[in-house]
């Protein structure tokens, strides 16, 4: 009788002790968003009739320094191109929070990534046509050729640029850079930006 009472005291002491040496939460740590794309830069450079690069590079960009945030909208440049000309388009994708070039990662995972070019500029009666011209030969869209119609039916079109991740690149139709049903190839959108287009 006495013994078990004593035991009980020990048990209680153990409980109390374990409780009050309880753990605390860790101090929070600043976590940089490694996945966020903050800047998309479109580099256009004219190609002459023989396919050689001529002139200076013109850049247009879309930027959103905080990533996805309520109340903040991205800044998107107007893209200005000249009628009848052909351009090489190089797309640069960056994370300015981590100061990281995401383009390299996209190229490394070329089998999982693909840009699609839509909007009124590329679809319907297009004023622009796009052709993949990536260095690796894969259809990625980091580098490509954009041809501006010589006498476009209208101006003020939209260029919608979409980066798909984890899609089935062999899906029928996915070789078309302006494949409207790109979602059917699976995967998800990492980028979906609409640039206003002005043709001179």
């Amino acid at each position: 009788m006495f013994n078990s009472k004593k035991n009980l005291v020990y048990v209680m002491a153990f409980f109390a002790l374990s409780f009050f040496t309880a753990c605390e939460s860790d101090d929070p740590v600043i976590e940089n968003d490694a996945e966020v794309i903050t800047d998309v830069i479109l580099n256009f450079q004219e190609l002459d009739a023989t396919g050689n690069l001529v002139g200076a590079v013109t850049t247009f960009s879309a930027s959103d320094p905080q990533g996805i945030e309520v109340g903040a909208t991205p800044t998107i440049d107007n893209v200005t191109l000249t009628k009848g000309k052909t351009y090489q388009l190089n797309i640069e994708v960056r994370n300015s929070i981590e100061n990281e070039d995401i383009t390299e990662e996209i190229l490394e995972e070329g089998d999982e990534h693909q840009f699609f070019f839509l909007g009124t500029a590329f679809v319907g009666s297009p004023v622009l046509t796009y052709q993949y011209d990536d260095l690796s030969g894969e259809l990625i869209g980091v580098q490509g050729i954009v041809t501006v119609a010589a006498s476009p039916g209208f101006n003020n079109a939209n260029m919608r640029i979409i980066l798909r991740h984890d899609l089935d690149k062999n899906f029928p139709g996915a070789t078309n850079p302006s494949f409207e049903n790109f979602v059917q190839a699976g995967g998800e959108s990492d980028l979906d930006i609409t640039f206003p287009l002005i043709l001179n």
Binding site: F19, A22, C23, E24, S25, D26, D27, P28, V29, E31, N32, D33, A34, E35
Partner: peptide
Amino acid sequence: NLIQQANSNVPGTGVTPLIPNYD
């Protein structure tokens, strides 16, 4: 009845945590 709880986000996710650390 006593309940004590400590929640921590383990660093290194590369994503701003959805919920804070708390006690």
